[in-house]
């Protein structure tokens, strides 16, 4: 079964739609819209995904869960590298991020990368929010198709 294919195509259409309908709006609005869609999906997805899980030990344990199980679920691979400063910043590196593999590897489409990363950022934020962690997620691409997601925990 190749059920990841429809999701990938759907995501492409989603990005295209959001950008087509808002010609006058700033690019930022589109990114925000996609992010909030991702947030909503992440929120409900993790709820169903973790319903038979054992309790998480700590924050790092949750991050590992995101890197392994969650990533595997959504992108059929694991995060390649997880780093943290132990003060609430985590960097997840994916050397071959699925949504970027369809784009050219050169620098030509670098500008197009952010719109394909907004939804995934939202997914992570939604998932972590559901697990009880408030955070800000940003993404960064230096060489396609590798991508870094930075998670900054918001403590109150």
């Amino acid at each position: 079964m190749a059920d990841e294919v429809p999701f990938e195509f759907l995501h492409m259409e989603l990005v295209a739609h959001i950008h087509n309908t808002s010609t006058k709006e700033e690019n930022d609005t589109c990114i925000a819209k996609l992010e909030s869609l991702g947030y909503r999906v992440g929120l409900s997805l993790i709820e169903r995904f973790t319903k038979d899980c054992s309790r998480f030990k700590d924050e790092l344990d949750m991050m590992k869960f995101i890197c392994k199980d969650f990533w595997n679920l959504v992108y059929k691979k694991q995060i390649d590298n997880l780093r943290t400063n132990h003060q609430g910043v985590y960097v997840l590196q994916d050397n071959k991020f699925r949504f970027l593999t369809q784009l050219s590897n050169g620098k030509q489409y670098m500008e197009a990368a952010p719109k394909y990363l907004a939804f995934p950022c939202g997914l992570i934020r939604g998932a972590l929010c559901s697990l009880g962690i408030n955070c800000i997620v940003t993404a960064e691409v230096s060489a396609m198709p590798a991508c870094k997601f930075q998670i900054q925990i918001q403590r109150l």
Binding site: D3, P6, F65, L73
Partner: peptide, 18 residues
């Protein structure tokens, strides 16, 4: 123990995104 049925939940990912 942690992962339920990834296949099923993956379908849900599509459903929820849609």
């Amino acid at each position: 123990a942690r992962t339920g049925d990834p296949r099923k939940v993956n379908g849900e990912l599509f459903t929820l995104t849609y």
